[in-house]
Amino acid sequence: MADEVELKERLTENDQLSSSAKNNNTDPGQNQNINGTERNFKFGEFTYNKGKTTHKFVKVTNKDGDKLDVRKLVQAIKTEWQLERPNLVISVTGGAWDFPMNRHVKEVFRKGIVEAADSTDAVVITGGTNVGVMKYTGTAMKYYKIATGKGEKIVTLGIATWDKLRGDIKEKLTDTIGKSEPAQLDLQPAKEEEENGTLEPNHSHFILVDDGKNKWGADVPVRAELEKQIKGKF
Rank of each mutant, 00 (worst) to 15 (best):
S20P: 00
E181L: 03
F206E: 05
L208V: 02
G151S: 05
P86S: 05
E193Q: 14
A183V: 06
S20W: 07
Q32A: 13
I125H: 07
A190C: 01
N130K: 00
K153V: 05
K56D: 01
V105F: 01
E13N: 10
T139G: 04
I169C: 06
L208Y: 00
E200T: 09
V108P: 00
T137K: 08
L68S: 07
T176A: 15
K145Q: 13
I177H: 06
E227C: 08
N49D: 15
A224S: 13
W162L: 03
N24T: 05
R223K: 12
A140K: 07
E4I: 12
F206K: 08
T120Q: 14
T26C: 08
E193N: 14
A21R: 01
D121R: 13
T137Q: 04
T161R: 03
A2G: 15
N62E: 09
G29R: 10
E107R: 07
K228T: 11
H203M: 00
G138Q: 03
E13G: 06
K135N: 13
A190F: 05
E193S: 14
D163S: 15
G51P: 00
D64Q: 04
R223S: 09
K164L: 15
K153P: 04
G44L: 12
M141L: 15
M141P: 00
K42I: 11
Q75V: 06
V209I: 08
Q229I: 13
E45A: 09
V124R: 06
E107H: 06
F109A: 08
V70H: 10
